[in-house]
């Protein structure tokens, strides 16, 4: 019994220590003025993290918008309220689905790749040798990746929403025959730019920080063996998914739950 309590206590201390390491880590790497060379490194990571994730995010967004429209139509048509379809599609996408699903896809596509890449650099002693040459790997390797993640995910989320709303339009208006004017009109009447688009962006920014942080830290902190890399990659996806879904509830409660 006592042994169990002691073990629990030690696990707790380990957790706190890891959290502290992660905090110091992000503090040391994300702060500071980027040099000219830093911009080039950031650009390269923007390509890797952002541009290469664009295809999967846009395709998913299109299908989610289409499904949303189809499901929404079958429900709304029972109440004779199918002209509210645009409003339903836009609000669900902007408030919930776009930030959350884009963040989950981002964790799977870019987050795991970041962990594996940094982990491999650690396993092949590239980080150590950089330090021996006298370059801080936090600045050179970690910082550009962090900032690329922070900027990419909100942009991807915007793309997701736009494509999703268009997908809803395709199914609702072009296929099921909802009147085009009421699709856009109801949407415009009910979507508030700050309240809905803005809050969605805030959500996605929070998710971007959390997912990128988890991915890069897992890569930097892993055990440098092939087994360690595969474990850390899995951990990145699991932890970021849980963090995104949990934080989404908290943020939704604060933004739309009338708690304010």
């Amino acid at each position: 019994m006592i042994a169990r309590v002691m073990r629990l206590g030690r696990r707790g201390c380990d957790l706190l220590e890891a959290l502290g390491r992660a905090g110091i880590f992000v503090g040391q790497s994300a702060v500071g003025v980027p040099s000219r060379e830093g911009w080039a490194l950031w650009l390269r990571q923007m390509h890797f993290v952002g541009v290469l994730s664009l295809a999967i995010v846009l395709v998913s967004g299109l299908f989610i918008g289409m499904v949303l429209s189809l499901q929404g139509y079958t429900i709304l048509v029972d109440f004779g309220a199918e002209q509210a379809l645009g409003q339903m599609v836009a609000l669900s996408l902007l408030r919930e689905l776009a930030p959350v699903v884009a963040a989950l896809l981002f964790a799977g596509r870019a987050g795991s790749a970041l962990t594996a890449e940094i982990g491999l650099m650690k396993a092949t002693e590239q980080l150590t040798s950089m330090e021996m040459i006298g370059v801080d790997p936090l600045r050179r390797v970690v910082a550009p990746r962090l900032w690329a993640g922070f900027v990419s995910l909100p942009l991807l989320t915007i793309g997701f929403s736009v494509v999703g709303i268009y997908g809803g339009y395709l199914v609702g208006v072009e296929w099921l025959g909802v009147f085009e004017g009421s699709y856009w009109g109801n949407m415009q009447a009910s979507v508030a730019f700050i309240g809905d688009v803005g809050n969605g962006m805030v959500k996605s920014l929070v998710f971007a920080v959390v997912v990128t942080w988890i991915a890069v830290f897992q890569g930097y902190d892993l055990v440098p063996t092939s087994e360690g890399i595969s474990r850390a990659t899995t951990r990145t996806v699991v932890y970021s998914s849980l963090a995104v879904l949990g934080l989404d509830f908290v943020l939704t409660a604060v933004m739309f739950g009338g708690l304010s």
């Binding site: 923007m46 541009v51 942009l155 709303i165 415009q188 730019f193 688009v197």
Partner: peptide, 17 residues
């Protein structure tokens, strides 16, 4: 990529909200 993101935001502002 970044231009598309900004245009998307404009679309969300004008057309959607």
């Amino acid at each position: 990529f970044m231009l598309a993101g900004i245009l998307g935001l404009v679309f969300l502002g004008l057309r959607v909200s």
